[in-house]
């Protein structure tokens, strides 16, 4: 009888796939952190209408939105070594950098940070602008510095507003990291591909890897709900 699935192979592929989870999570979380910096930075540039920089950041956001992620990953992977090499030869900069020793994970992290940063930028900008002007004024009136005002008053509230959007984008990013095998990163997807070609059982490994992604995303969603509740606790009109 012909089997639809080699169940044993499917089950046995899990440990190897799960062992690469740190790579997947590392790239996703790492790029979330970096992209938050990029997103806040570009959002502030737009809000304060910084000359030149605000034009540059508009172009950046537009470019990222208008080109496929896959292409962006290739651009980073092939572009950065070339640029570093060029700077070394032409200007003698970055002499200590050895282009060949940069791990593909680093390119993946960069590409995803730049990509997610652009998407976060708009979300963060509108979240910051959702905090009423009156609180900005009150902070100024007591003599707070812009930095203190942002860190202690504005960002915590903007974050609470932005979390649902940030969460969705983060979950998309987790799924998008399945692209990184194309530049040689062995994440859970890359591991699945390797196992699949070894055992000639692609359907089985892709079922396995999809289950891993699924569970991961469900867990992340749960955590996000908790984080959002906590971040918005001050909005509830009942005694704390």
């Amino acid at each position: 009888m012909e089997n639809l699935l080699d169940l044993n192979f499917l089950i046995e592929s899990f440990p190897a796939i799960v062992s690469r989870l740190p790579i997947t999570i590392g790239i996703a979380v790492g790029s979330l952190v970096l992209s938050l910096f990029i997103g806040v930075f570009t959002a502030l540039i737009k809000i304060y209408k910084v000359p030149v920089l605000s034009v540059i950041s508009s172009i950046y956001v537009s470019f990222i939105r208008g080109t496929p992620l896959l292409v962006q990953i290739y651009l980073v992977f092939y572009g950065i070594p070339k640029i570093i090499y060029f700077l070394q030869i032409e200007y003698g900069w970055l002499q200590s950098a050895d282009v060949n020793s940069i791990a593909p994970e680093v390119y993946a992290l960069l590409a995803f940070s730049v990509n997610l940063g652009a998407y976060l930028s708009e979300t963060i900008r509108s979240a910051i602008e959702s905090v009423d002007r009156g609180q900005f004024e009150a902070a100024k009136a007591i003599g707070m510095s812009p930095t203190a005002m942002m860190l202690k008053i504005i960002f915590p509230q903007a974050l609470a507003v932005a979390i649902p959007n940030l969460g969705n984008m983060f979950i998309s990013t987790i799924k998008d990291t399945s692209l990184v095998f194309i530049i040689g990163v062995v994440d859970i997807m890359g591991q699945a591909k390797i196992l699949g070609s070894r055992g000639l059982a692609f359907f089985e490994v892709y079922i396995a890897v999809s289950i891993v992604y699924w569970i991961l995303c469900i867990i992340v969603e749960r955590v996000l709900v908790k984080i959002e509740k906590r971040a918005r606790r001050y909005e509830r009109g009942i005694a704390a």
Binding site: D132, G134, Q135, E137, A138, A139, A141, I142, K152, I153, P156, Q157, A160, Y234, E235, A240
Partner: peptide, 15 residues
């Protein structure tokens, strides 16, 4: 100077 606003303008994320 200390300012008191018509709309209070309290910091909503702080106790």
């Amino acid at each position: 100077t200390g300012m008191v606003f018509q709309q209070y303008n309290l910091f909503k994320n702080l106790t």
